[in-house]
Amino acid sequence: MKREWSLFAGLAVVLLVATLLAVAVPGAVSAPEDDVRRGFLQIRDVTVSHGQVGGETVPLTVETRVQHDGGPSENVSVLFRAVGSQSGLVEATRSVDVGTVEGEREVPVTANLTVPRRGGYRIQTVVYADGRRYDEGETEVGGVGTLTPEYAQTTVDFHRFAGGADAQPSVEYRIERAGEDTTTLNVSTYLTNNGDTPSEEVRLTLKARQADSNIVAAERTVRVGQIQPGTTANPSTTLTVPAEYNYYLDATLWKDGVIVTSTRAAANLDPSETISVNETRREVGLRVEDFERGDGAGGAPDRERPGTPVSEEGPGFTAALTLVALLAIALGLARRGGSRD
């Protein structure tokens, strides 16, 4: 009986102590509150943009928004990877430490990944907390190779006329002078500044390329200068070429020593056949001597000024090569005569 009373007395002491603790320290014996629950992390959104494009690489800025719920999450980090869409190779990786995240909110996390300027990429995002993977996501980025490098960007382009296949060409010509052996073409084009500010200094190269042989028969360069926003310039020059051949008129736009764009039109001077810029070439009776180097414009170039040629060249065989050939023939005849003696 005494033993039972001792057990009851001990139980009473325990209950008394628990009651005193509950009064003195509220919550000491209560269930855990909501703020000590395990935190939950989830990827909500991923956006990708590019920075200044280089010749070989492109910096991609990746931002992901991570949703957090529950109790505090410690040692949170986000891993970013850029994987080549075709090769499957990891081209760039970066891990960003976020630290401790508390409360119900979205946390933006940003990383920069520099990738080669080619193809497309899968951007993978993985969220960790205390070394444990909570969530992952992926987004696709295509056309990275089509991005224009910063050094080649310009608001100036060849004007594109409406009308599809029957549209007016961006490069056109007229016969300025027709001789027995040569024809002088006045070649012009249309350059439009599609930007909101004056363009950079640009220059234009115009070439007459014989359609079947690909020989450049004449070439001149025109300094265009600045073009005001929303306006079109109409630079022109003359090209003198051998008569009765068909030519491609190649126009190339340059900015600071870099080709930024080009276009082509056809010039049909052969009355027996015509060409277009999309047709297949075929062999013809080509006389290479017709394309010996000349001044390309029937005279000396003007001094440099906007809209006028600053340099010119013509392709083909030079007088020096002809002289070397004549000397070689003479030397061979002299040796033959000496051997007979």
Rank of each mutant, 00 (worst) to 15 (best):
R94F: 07
R94S: 14
R94T: 13
S95G: 03
S95V: 15
S95R: 14
V96D: 02
V96A: 00
V96G: 00
V96T: 11
D97H: 05
D97M: 11
D97G: 08
V98D: 07
V98T: 09
G99E: 11
G99P: 00
T100A: 10
T100E: 14
V101K: 12
V101C: 05
E102M: 12
E102F: 13
E102S: 15
E102N: 10
G103Y: 12
G103M: 11
G103I: 14
E104F: 11
E104N: 12
R105M: 12
R105D: 10
R105P: 05
R105N: 12
E106S: 14
E106Y: 14
E106W: 08
E106M: 09
V107W: 06
V107S: 09
V107K: 06
P108C: 10
P108W: 13
P108A: 08
V109C: 06
V109W: 10
V109N: 04
T110N: 01
T110M: 02
A111G: 10
A111F: 08
A111L: 07
A111D: 04
A111P: 09
A111M: 09
N112V: 15
N112H: 07
N112C: 01
L113N: 03
L113M: 05
T114G: 02
V115C: 04
P116E: 09
P116S: 09
P116R: 14
P116Y: 11
R117E: 09
R117T: 04
R117M: 03
R118L: 03
R118W: 04
G119H: 03
G119F: 14
G120T: 08
Y121H: 00
Y121K: 01
Y121E: 00
Y121T: 03
Y121N: 01
R122G: 05
R122T: 03
R122W: 14
R122V: 05
I123Q: 02
I123L: 10
Q124T: 11
Q124A: 10
Q124M: 11
Q124I: 02
T125K: 00
V126I: 14
V126P: 08
V126Y: 14
V127Q: 10
Y128D: 00
Y128T: 06
Y128M: 12
A129S: 15
A129F: 13
A129L: 06
D130N: 15
D130G: 01
D130K: 12
D130A: 06
D130W: 08
D130C: 00
D130S: 13
G131V: 07
G131S: 07
G131T: 04
R132A: 15
R133P: 01
Y134N: 01
Y134G: 00
D135M: 02
D135Y: 11
D135E: 07
E136Y: 15
G137S: 15
G137Y: 08
E138S: 12
E138R: 05
E138V: 04
T139G: 02
T139V: 14
E140L: 12
E140S: 04
E140D: 05
E140P: 00
V141F: 05
V141E: 02
V141T: 01
V141W: 04
V141H: 02
G142P: 00
G142E: 11
G143R: 06
G143W: 10
G143P: 03
V144N: 01
V144D: 02
V144G: 02
G145A: 11
G145C: 07
G145K: 06
T146E: 15
T146L: 11
T146V: 08
T146P: 01
T146W: 03
T146Q: 13
T146G: 06
